[in-house]
Amino acid sequence: MEPGTTSDVPGGEPRSSVTQLRRGVLEYCVLALLRERPRYGFDVVKELSEQGGLLTSEGTIYPLLARLRKDGVVATSWQPSSSGPPRRYYEITPDGAAALNHFSSDWVRFRNAVDRVLGTSAGPEPVNGPSPQLASRTEV
């Protein structure tokens, strides 16, 4: 099984189509994580990294978060930390929640259409990899 070479090797990342896909989807994954609860940057990174294949360079999440804040879909606040200096927490705004809802329904249609064309729609073998978890998370 090789679903598009999503090598986790930073730097040596191939300019594959998956890279392009990831770029467009990542911000909604971040929004989805923040919908659960406010998180600080490293927490978002950790969560995304655990999903595998979603994040190739962890550091690029910080520019992304800054962009989301600029777009008004997340807001930040400082919260004290039990283990050190206060942390900047990110939380989703109503605009962000609306954007995420919108994307989620678009995503389901998009994913189903692609699955149908590729012939990868839920066959006998449950769809592979970590992405389904995320997809179902997004759908909720």
Partner: peptide, 24 residues
């Protein structure tokens, strides 16, 4: 390594300064 190169991270800042046409 997982963090990515400084150049990579800074490059990811770019879209905020010059919005990619009609993208995000």
């Amino acid at each position: 390594d997982r963090l990515g190169t400084p150049e990579e991270i800074v490059a990811a800042e770019a879209p905020s300064r010059e919005p990619v046409a009609g993208e995000q």
